[in-house]
Computed example of a mutant assay.
Amino acid sequence: MRVALAFFALVLLWSTTPLAIKWSGEGPGYLFGAMGRMVIGLACMLPALLVMRQKLPLSTKALSTYLAVALQIYGAMLSTYWAAQFIPSGWISVIFGLTPMMTALMAAVWLAEKSLSPVKILAYLIGFSGLMVMFGSALEIGRESALGIAAVMFSAFLQSASSVWIKRVNSKLPAVCQVTGGLLIAVPLYIATWFCMNGQWPETLPATSLVSIIYLGAIATTVGFALYYYVLIHLPATQVALITLLTPILSLLLGNAVNHEPLSSKVLIGTALIMSALLLHQSKLSGRKRQKAALKKRA
């Protein structure tokens, strides 16, 4: 029961994150929203590190891991915050649905994992066609919307690269150490970026933006992180991956209901293609794991 509650809580958190990202930048600007979230997140993670009596190792492997995590926290998240100015929040979650496939493709190249097959290639082609439909819908809105989709794709690429990098380093650090170490690198970069590109405290900080920043920093970054690893411990990775199938649909519906974001036929078709590609990709992974388990039993 606890695992099921944690699973659905994580789905809700990940579904609301894109809309909170969009709201956090309306008023104070996307840079301030991103910086504020990460500063609050670090302020929450440091006490958690002390409570859990964990130390931050400074070995070569540990430092490489922190850099890999910072790539996601700074590079990927900054691109997402920039993109949120130009595209509906639900689109962010839909495009991020391609992340598992991008990660598998990178793992085939950098980790020599056998993650390419005819079915996988078909899934990539379906996902790519869905992305092209989304691009077409964005161009109907304006050039900036198309750039927003490109920025989210770049963000998903950086997140996938970060995951593969962490896997390649294989430092076996506790998750709380990885996130805290990454934040310790990313937060100064956020502050420096904000100072160089803006550097002014926002004249107005709407209540919606303030609540969104606090929610993202204190809840989405800390509670969401804890729930994810709790669920990952108790459920197979293939079941955890179902979150990426549920969150895009909920994000689209939430953005439409709460933020009046448009749901055109092209957006729905593109979403359906990307979700179908992800489902095909994940079902292939699940089937391969069942085959391996059966072989082990026979042995």
Rank of each mutant, 00 (worst) to 15 (best):
S89W: 06
T193G: 08
A76K: 04
I243Q: 09
Q85M: 10
S160M: 14
A48M: 06
G36V: 10
L58F: 05
L122Q: 03
A9T: 12
Q85F: 04
A62S: 13
S286G: 11
M52Y: 11
V152I: 15
M134Q: 15
L183W: 02
P202F: 00
I40V: 08
A299P: 14
A20Y: 03
T60G: 10
G217W: 00
T60P: 10
A293R: 10
N198W: 14
A70S: 12
I219G: 01
P206S: 11
G217I: 02
W82E: 00
G36Q: 07
A83N: 02
S286M: 11
V11W: 05
V176C: 05
F7G: 00
T204M: 10
G33I: 00
S155D: 03
S59Y: 10
V133A: 10
A20V: 10
L184A: 02
I233W: 13
A150W: 03
L205K: 08
F32H: 08
P248Q: 07
S160Q: 08
S137C: 09
V164R: 10
I274A: 02
L56R: 06
L216M: 15
M153R: 01
T60W: 12
L245E: 07
I126F: 08
T244S: 11
A294L: 02
M132G: 06
L58T: 06
A257N: 05
V267Y: 03
S24Q: 13
